[in-house]
């Protein structure tokens, strides 16, 4: 294809997105659109899968059967969300094996938040409330993103996600209505998860390299700073309802702009974690690799069984 032809196709493509038409897998798309989507959707899928690990840590130690079934269901949902997203990503012409390999080799990223440890039961509450809360804010606008399979996956994810946040908040509520010690546990969890949750919504608009292009492709419909402000504004009253204090001395309602002002975020910490130096980066990747390697015999057995069944069927058909 000549350069002029590509330019022409690109112009048609941009116009299509501007008209709010969806792009489907077999449609022509600029190579950069394909690559950016593979990067973002796979990052999202990896986050769901790695996101199971910090919570898996507490399934066997949940304080009651009610909490245990809820946590199990939440973690199972996350596996499901990972699968929806991997499938969407594969429609762009990358294999599942390649996606896993990129995660296991450290080439692909996943959300920085999952590189923090889950130290107490209260962390299950804080994760559901804050981390899933931030995820929902990020995901709702993606339901109308331009790439059809991604948008459809996000609709399913968002439908299922709201129970996650509610179960987390309920855990916090029980702790806050409990003993002094339990309330301290809840406060401690909020103290540790607050800032990483704010960072999870991504670097500031000024430092974000992909924002402009992503907005044009509707891969992003609000900037990181807008999403962060929305998260803070809706979460502060929820903390008040719990009787907990947000660990930010600079947090203050600003009447004029109709939203909260907040303190400086430690972006050095964020970049350290993104680059692999968070408290749990190594453990998370080791766990993923082990799960993949230890599960190899299951995949091999399934392949062998399917081959054997097929052969049997063919033999029976011949005999008849």
């Amino acid at each position: 294809m000549s350069e002029a032809e590509i330019k022409n196709l690109e112009a048609q493509f941009d116009a299509k997105i501007a008209r709010d038409e969806k792009i489907e897998p077999k449609d022509w798309m600029p190579e950069k659109y394909r690559k950016t989507h593979i990067r973002q959707i796979s990052q999202h899928a990896h986050s769901e899968i790695v996101g199971m690990l910090p919570e898996g840590n507490w399934i066997t130690r949940a304080p009651s059967l009610r909490r245990k079934v809820a946590l199990l269901a939440k973690v199972q949902d996350e596996a499901g969300h990972g699968l929806y997203l991997y499938s969407a990503c594969e429609t762009l012409g990358i294999t599942r094996e390649q996606l896993y390999e990129d995660l296991h080799s450290g080439k692909a990223k996943y959300s920085s938040i999952f590189n923090y440890p889950t130290m107490t039961w209260a962390d299950m509450g804080a994760i559901g409330w804050l981390v899933d809360g931030a995820a929902i804010i990020n995901q709702v606008p993606l339901c109308s993103t331009s790439f059809g399979p991604y948008a459809r996956a996000m609709v399913r994810v968002c439908k299922e996600e709201s129970f996650h946040q509610r179960q987390g908040y309920e855990i916090m509520l029980s702790l806050c209505n409990g003993s002094e010690e339990q309330k301290e546990m809840a406060q401690d969890a909020l103290n540790r998860w607050w800032w990483p949750s704010l960072m999870m919504l991504g670097p500031t608009d000024a430092a974000s390299t992909h924002t402009e292009q992503s907005m044009k492709w509707k891969l992003k419909r609000k900037t990181n700073d807008e999403l962060r402000q929305q998260f803070i504004d809706q979460t502060v009253p929820q903390a008040e309802l719990l009787g907990l204090t947000i660990p930010d001395p600079d947090l203050k309602w600003n009447d004029e702009k109709g939203s909260y002002d907040f303190g400086a975020i430690d972006w050095d910490e964020f970049w350290q974690v993104v680059k692999g130096h968070g408290p749990m980066n190594k453990k998370r990747l080791d766990d993923r690799r082990n799960a993949w390697n230890d599960g190899a015999w299951v995949r091999e057995a399934a392949t062998a069984y399917a081959a054997k069944q097929k052969l049997k069927k063919e033999e029976t058909a011949q005999a008849v």
Binding site: A73, Q76, D77, G80, L83, Y84, S87, E90, R96, R152, A153, R156, E160, A302, T303, Y305, A306, Q309, K310
Partner: peptide
């Protein structure tokens, strides 16, 4: 409603139930 990987039809059916009809 989506896709998944499976070795045979039976496994695809079981996986579909778990992945796409949890609710």
């Amino acid at each position: 409603c989506g896709s998944l990987h499976a070795e045979d039809a039976e496994m695809a059916m079981n996986n579909a139930r778990d992945v796409y009809t949890r609710r």
